[in-house]
Design a protein around this nucleic acid. Structure first.
Length: 602
RNA sequence: GGUCCUGUGGUGCAGUUUGGAGUGCACGCCGGCCUGUCAAGCCGGAGGCCGCGGGUUCAAAUCCCGUCAGGACCGCCA
């Protein structure tokens, strides 16, 4: 924690509560703060007075008030968390009453005057005691939750992160440019938040889902390196790691840059962040996995590399070669046979294994298993495979006695993702994730297109502005499913921190790329007119990325919920419980913007 | 749009499986006692539509249906 701000010496206070030490004994002080605790002994009243940010810094000092003195009824009558200014003398505590748990524990302040500055009602939840409080109450009384400390500490860390990012990127030659919050609706992506125009009836601004097009326009405008801690707005459902509505990205873009250049800059930034704000360890350059490798080895496009466990594939060893039909038929059906070792899992209950099989079924995969019990190999596969075949699986999975092996048979992606999910869950459960490590990894070479299962139509898998690897030739000659994009993710400890790409700055390649997804040139022109036009006036090749600001904080602060790193978050269902938003507006307001509300049909 | 979990004095929880009087714990609140506490202590007290509505039953916090609120997840998030 940084040092506190300069103290305004005035009639409220001339010292901070938490600063008082033995060398102050004998001096007269004026203090102000919150009443953190009261201990009334009848003949003697102790009051713990807390500074602003006091819970964070542990900056509390004990006041002593005698019943025959004027301040007694004042302090006696104020409830906890009331605000008071007191004058008094710093005295040394009798040796037997020194409190070694307090920084100020060797002294106390004998109160001579007390002026109440504000009073507090009975609190909706305890501020000082660190009892669990329901999140609904914490959000409704966010100012009290902030006063409690842990949240305030994370918000302070958030400020430090913002400062560090600005100083670091400015030193690396990035220009911070602010882009509009009121802009045009974009046809791709999530649902937009719309802002009706009062000047233009029936027309709308949209809040940006990201400054994507603006930062590319800045490249065309000759800005060599751009960054912004950019607010992004998406009207989409939330998750624990995803705010409904608004979030922040460290948005950056570089002209005449390659994928490697972006990686280098981000590795410098993330290393600076880790070293500056965390006791966790990391090492750069970060390892790279292709999307295909990530799926095959870890069953996820955002693998937690701390877990160690990897999937294995026995399709070549067992597919078509066993008496077990689901294995024998797998290669012919284009299916894979994959397995995951669960350390010490042999003794798990039948219900546990059935749960896995059930999840597999829901995922459109066959799930089965082996238990390497010391008394013998058990599980459905033990009965259906020969001893030799069991040995193949055990060896491939590198399993040891006492382990279980989960096996999935089905389409490559589905089977892998199913086991990847198990890997993540059991890995965390088994404590395989080192909490002191930040395991960054680049996931590269994402496919450019994905095929709709039902219609067979191709669509962009990710960002339509990404440069296809191999350019025009690849688009012309390759099966769309085989075209890779210069598209990359930065993953840390199983959390997707960031997506980025080398952008497609060539109108001709853009036309070809959009054509495969079924969009004609008119569609590009009408959907992205500014970018399309700009790319006809000498756009430089450029590349960028946008690490999630809130997500980085979550990882640094070991928080599973994004609301824990935001001062005033919306709740899961996008309500602001503190400010009561959203809320109806007056008819006059609606008239101004030429809107009428049509309630949903019952 | 869907699935699951939770809802009990101001706070956090137990009680719900197996229906039997709002039964309990810790904290807070109000009052009293108390001159060395720092999670102060002791005594007393107040505070409940068991989220809400309906149903089953002699009887519902408990079982069933619906609904609202909070959370986790699926869909969604270029």
């Amino acid at each position: 924690m940084d040092s506190p701000p300069p103290l305004n010496v005035n009639r409220y206070r001339n010292r901070r509560c938490g600063d008082l030490r033995t060398e102050d004994v004998g001096g007269t002080v004026q203090l102000a703060g919150w009443i953190a605790a009261k201990r009334d002994h009848g003949g003697l009243l102790f009051v713990d007075l807390r500074d602003p940010n006091g819970v964070v810094a542990g900056s509390v000092v004990q006041l002593v008030v005698h019943p025959d003195q004027a301040p007694f009824p004042v302090l006696d009558g104020l409830r906890l968390e009331s605000v008071v200014s007191v004058g008094g003398r710093v005295v040394a505590r009798p040796p037997e009453t020194v409190n070694p748990k307090l920084a100020t524990g060797e002294v106390e302040v004998a109160v001579e005057t007390a002026e109440p500055l504000s009073s507090a009602d009975v609190l909706p939840f305890p501020v000082e005691r660190d009892t669990e409080v329901g999140e609904e109450n914490r959000l409704r009384y966010r100012y009290l939750d902030l006063r409690r400390g842990p949240l305030a500490e994370r918000i302070a860390r958030r400020a430090q992160l913002a400062t560090l990012v600005r100083i670091h990127l400015a030193a690396r030659g990035f220009l911070e440019v602010q882009t509009p919050v009121l802009t045009a609706s974009s046809p791709e992506g999530a649902r937009d938040f719309l802002v009706p125009s009062s000047q233009y009836p029936g027309e709308f601004y949209a809040l940006p889902q990201a400054p994507q097009q603006f930062k590319q326009l800045l490249m065309v405008g000759g800005i060599e390196r751009y960054f912004q801690i950019a607010p992004c707005f998406r009207d989409e459902a939330s998750r624990a790691d995803r705010s409904p509505g608004e979030f922040y990205q460290i948005d950056l873009e570089m002209a005449f840059a390659t994928q490697d250049d972006v990686f280098h800059e981000v590795e410098l930034l993330m290393t600076a962040i880790t070293e500056g704000l965390s006791s966790k360890s990391t090492s750069a350059p970060f390892p790279r996995l292709t999307f295909t490798e990530a799926i095959d080895r870890f069953g996820s496009d955002k693998p937690d590399l701390r877990l160690g466990l990897e999937l294995c594939d026995v399709t070549a060893d067992l597919g078509g070669r066993t008496e077990l039909p689901m294995f024998a038929d797998a290669p012919g059906a284009g299916h894979v046979i994959r397995a995951l070792r669960v350390p010490g899992g042999a003794g798990r209950s039948r219900k546990w294994f059935d749960g896995f099989a059930d999840e597999a079924r829901k995922a459109g995969v066959v799930g089965t298993w082996l238990q390497l019990d010391p008394t013998g190999t058990k599980g459905p596969l033990a009965r259906r495979l020969t001893e030799e075949e069991v040995g193949v699986v055990v060896q491939a999975a590198a399993a040891e006695p006492g382990d279980a092996i989960l096996v999935a048979v089905g389409p490559r992606m589905k089977a892998s993702l199913l086991l990847g999910d198990q890997r993540r869950r059991h890995g965390r459960e088994l404590g395989l994730a080192d909490p002191d490590r930040l395991a960054f990894v680049w996931v590269v070479d994402f496919p450019m297109y994905e095929q709709d299962e039902a219609t067979g139509a191709w669509d962009f898998a990710h960002n339509p502005f990404s440069m296809p690897q191999g350019g025009l030739e690849a688009l012309r000659d390759k099966d769309p499913g085989d075209v890779l994009a210069y598209q990359y993710d930065l993953v840390c400890n199983g959390v997707e921190l960031s997506s980025g790409a080398v952008r497609n700055h060539r109108p001709d390649i853009m036309e070809a790329a959009f054509a495969i997804a079924g969009y004609g040139p008119d569609r590009i022109r009408s959907s992205f007119p500014a970018l399309w036009n700009a790319f006809h006036y000498g756009p430089p090749p450029h590349a960028g990325i946008a690490p999630g600001f809130d997500r980085i904080l979550m990882v640094l602060e070991d928080q599973a919920n994004i609301r824990e790193v935001i001062a005033f978050p919306l709740n899961q269902s996008a309500r602001d419980l503190l400010m009561s938003a959203p809320a109806p507006v007056t008819d006059a307001q609606l008239r101004d913007i030429h809107l009428a509300v049509v309630p949903p049909a019952p």
